[in-house]
Design a protein around this nucleic acid. Structure first.
Lengths: 250, 250
DNA sequence: GTGATACATCTGTATGACAAGTTGTCAATA
DNA sequence: TATTGACAACTTGTCATACAGATGTATCAC
């Protein structure tokens, strides 16, 4: 049953075996390979196929039981009870600590914010545009001035939230708020390292201004492109800084 | 440390030891006995005090870690990370009944799936491509043949899920699963009306094939464009059908 | 004081064993 | 034939032990 592994990319360094097996099992459920109501292979079988101890398999199963994705009964087996998290779409708090998962979260953010920028360009009211501009200026001051690192992150988040708000679509705003909250601490750590290395966030300031200009001009295609570029670059910057941190630890 | 037990209510029959210990630990957190940030007693200590094996304690801790209430680190210990369950991104079930909110949900889906199509074109494995093609064919058969309405919706969802899966990014897959599940009933109602009006979903079949071809060719820009077009058109079709239903009701 | 080293302690993982519960088989029985 | 009941073959639940790997701390040398 090596095909259990086929879809799982090389797993994050530092992730425990329990984390890894949890991901494999979860993927088998959400991908539909194990439909809702179906029975899982026994823990012993899974342990053999995945080449880990039964201890690790039980750890993974117990987590997914806590999420409501699996249920088990002594003597019968374990079953898929739901193919989605009980409480909507959620990101595990520890996931942002794994660079691979973090990059995936950033990818999702990209998909969502690129289109948000386009909607914002089409629909932003004067008030929205003013807030976007204000957030861009605040970010500018925070980065070029002598403000603390925290102010920079907050201004950054404020800008992106303003763009999401300007879509006039509360789901964009809601999803951004959730992703932003999940990323806040990590962004803070990254920016801290950036400052230590001499600071490289002036690019981000210019990118914010460019996006704000495109939205103000009502050019949705341009807003899309500039947002894409900005998120690609800032994602690379963040991941680069975090890699420095992890390397420094070792 | 018998006071660990003092506040625990009589536990349900059939509850495993793991369930019981989970409740004890959870109570110690929410009651404030173990403040946020504090360190838990070691697993060995807890096992002794609670008179269970370390296995059971680990089971309980792993569940609470999955809930985001605890976090642990090898060599350091386990800590209280939050005294309340984390809330994710959620869509109210009644929102899909409002046409305006529904169109907003579809917009969010667009943002997410357009970029997913691009990632899929870049990263899809042979297995992914085969599944996408199979889902497109299944949709084809369901729409051109004499299958039920439900099969069509399921095949439609399967196609889009396959694309999300092909990103290799479980957050795209997870968000799609959530949005798809939220939309399933509404899509069913819309397609029912479409069939009643003479059927207009052959366009969607062709669009699916077009998308599949773009992904198979590895052309991410084309995949993006075609997915955007498809979601725009199918969104309009769905909303149009639903308006017919609402008009018929009145 | 400072840095290197050894040690104690914690979580993570593996292994083996047994208890407890469920399901299917199959023969004995009415 | 239909039903019962013992039994074997599974499953998950729990325990005990051992060791690996990571971390923090005390200790020693300089």
């Amino acid at each position: 049953m090596t095909d259990l592994f086929q879809a799982s990319a090389p797993l994050a360094r530092g992730a425990t075996l329990g984390d890894q097996v949890t991901e494999v099992l979860r993927h088998n459920v959400v991908s539909g390979a194990w439909p809702v109501g179906s029975m899982l292979p026994s823990e012993t079988t899974l342990a053999q196929d995945l080449e880990v101890s039964r201890t690790v398999v039980r750890e993974a199963v117990s987590r997914l039981k806590a999420e409501g994705m699996l249920s088990s009964q002594q003597g019968r087996g374990a079953f898929v009870s739901s193919d989605r998290p009980q409480m909507g779409f959620a990101i595990d708090k520890q996931d942002v600590e794994s660079l691979r998962k973090l990059s995936h979260i950033l990818e999702l953010r990209m998909g969502m914010e690129i289109e948000a920028a386009a909607f914002a360009a089409e629909r932003a009211t004067d008030a929205h545009r003013a807030e976007i501009q204000a957030a861009a200026d605040m970010f500018d001051n925070a980065e070029t001035g002598a403000s603390g690192v925290s102010e920079g992150v907050e201004a950054d988040l404020r800008f992106h939230r303003a763009v999401s708000d300007a879509t006039g679509n509360d789901y964009y705003l809601g999803l951004f708020n959730y992703l932003g909250a999940s990323l806040r601490e990590t962004m803070l750590a990254g920016r801290l390292k950036a400052v230590e290395r001499g600071g490289n966030s002036r690019d981000a300031v210019a990118e914010h201004h460019d996006i704000a200009a495109a939205i103000a001009a009502g050019d949705s295609d341009l807003a899309r492109d500039r947002m894409r570029l900005h998120l690609q670059l800032s994602g690379q910057r963040l991941l680069g800084n975090l890699r420095q941190i992890k390397a420094g630890d070792a």
